[in-house]
């Protein structure tokens, strides 16, 4: 049991919620020797950094807002600098349950290079987002023969050694699709793990404009590589 795990959480304007999210993260996870929590405050102005610091998490701050993809990349690079063996991505709004973490990383110990959660589509996720998520997953399957029913799920884990194969450039929400596509091109073995999601208020996440941008990028990656 020598694997250390780094949980990377991108946060933007989550000052009200970040404390309870961080406090719910277990101090130890089965199969790992050490759990490090890295919060990347992506240019928040509501005291997110301060609130996160008080929980003992490592807090990195983007002076300006760059986007979820950029924040996760900063956090992932920090995890590698700290020598983490497993990197986990988790949302800052409490949508993902820390209790699902052992199930999420279990496939990594069974031979998978990476594992991504899949959500149950239904209420309270608005129908527009359900359609959008399904459409993007369908597009990914058609363009890249990549079977993943929820390509936009932000709860995922991967071995640090996979970073060169997964390293994404997208600063926006398209990074989730980009890392799947890059991973597939590099023969990364993905496992899919059903997860539970909790929506504490209105749905926050990929919007219509983000969906259009992701679809456009998927086509571009297909054509231009």
């Amino acid at each position: 049991m020598t694997n250390s795990i780094a949980i990377v959480i991108p946060a933007h304007q989550e000052g009200d919620r970040i404390t309870s999210v961080l406090e719910a993260i277990p101090k130890a996870v089965s199969g790992t020797s050490r759990v490090v929590v890295i919060v990347v405050d992506d240019g928040s102005t509501d005291g997110t950094s301060r609130a996160a610091s008080q929980t003992g998490a490592i807090v990195l701050r983007h002076p300006v807002n760059l986007g979820a993809g950029a924040a996760l990349r900063t956090g992932t690079e920090a995890a590698l600098l700290l020598g983490a063996d497993i990197v986990v991505h988790m949302d800052a709004d409490g949508q993902h349950l820390p209790e699902d973490l052992p199930r999420l990383i279990a496939p990594l110990f069974a031979g998978a290079d990476a594992a991504t959660g899949i959500r149950a589509f239904g209420r309270p996720m608005p129908w527009l987002f359900i359609i959008g998520n399904r459409f993007l997953s369908w597009m990914t399957r058609v363009l890249f023969s990549l079977e993943n029913p929820d390509t936009q799920c932000a709860y995922r884990a991967f071995w640090a050694r996979c970073w060169p194969a997964l390293r994404w450039d997208s600063r926006d929400y398209a990074f989730a699709s980009e890392m799947l596509v890059r991973g597939q091109r590099s023969s990364v073995r993905w496992a899919i793990v059903p997860i539970r999601t909790v929506y504490l208020d209105r749905y926050k996440g990929t919007g219509l404009g983000d969906g259009v941008r992701i679809a456009r990028k998927l086509v571009r990656w297909r054509i231009l590589g």
Partner: peptide, 25 residues
């Protein structure tokens, strides 16, 4: 922005082990 954010980490948090070599993937 990323360098500014990571510089804080490098200043305050010593690595627990050597940084993984990407070529060793």
């Amino acid at each position: 922005v990323r360098e500014i954010a990571l510089s804080k980490l490098e200043g305050n948090q010593p690595p627990t082990r050597p940084r993984p070599d990407p070529s060793a993937s």
